[in-house]
Amino acid sequence: MSGQSQRLNVVPTVTMLGVVKARLVGATRGHALLKKKSDALTVQFRQILKKIVSTKESMGDIMKTSSFALTEAKYVAGDNIKHVVLENVREASLRVRSRQENVAGVKLPKFDYTADADAAKSDLTGLARGGQQVQQCRAAYVKAIEVLVELASLQTSFLTLDEAIKTTNRRVNALENVLKKIQGYKKREIEKKMQMQLQIQSSSTKVPSNKEASFNSSQNLLAVADKDEDIIF
């Protein structure tokens, strides 16, 4: 057992009681803070969930209009426009910039798209015929990208927040159910032992030979406490 070596040595003294009390206060405060963080993250998480669902639905409509615009462009400019497009790929004029946003200490990625305006102008696709339709089609697809980039940043935030909420909740539960109970138990135990020692000491003033026995009994109490399975610290 690795927990055996990490066990806190508890001696029934006033200083130890103070230490344990301070630890209990610390655990309570930490628990309250973590709970607040968890709540803040959950609020953000719900907002993102709602946005994801609505954006997913608008994505369907936008993809429909943009593929219809492509069909129009194909009809006007001829079906071989796709070969022109496929051959003219050089460097991306539409790129994605990523930055971070901070929500209650959790870094969320956010994407923005940046379009290179002069690169789009030099493109001569549809020069012979159907130029206007091609431009409309391009605009429709740029709009689609806009929605898709937003959806992507929502989705990554969703995954990151999900993970963060899980860890925070695990810590909250650990503090709530394990640490606080153990510290409280230790505090009570020390108080009990100190009372017992006081009684023994007051009785030992009358009977001096009892001193040895009192030492043994306090040792025994510690041994009993050590056997408790719940103590891991």
Binding site: L70, K82, A92, R95, R97, S98, T125, R138, I145
Partner: peptide, 28 residues
């Protein structure tokens, strides 16, 4: 999370969808 200024958008799709997005200037 990497914070770079120019990342790309990759696509795995049918021809029409890819052509549309290439027209928008995504291809590299």
């Amino acid at each position: 999370i990497p914070t770079n200024n120019s990342a790309l958008i990759a696509m795995i799709a049918d021809e029409d969808t890819v052509v549309g997005f290439l027209l928008a200037g995504v291809g590299n």
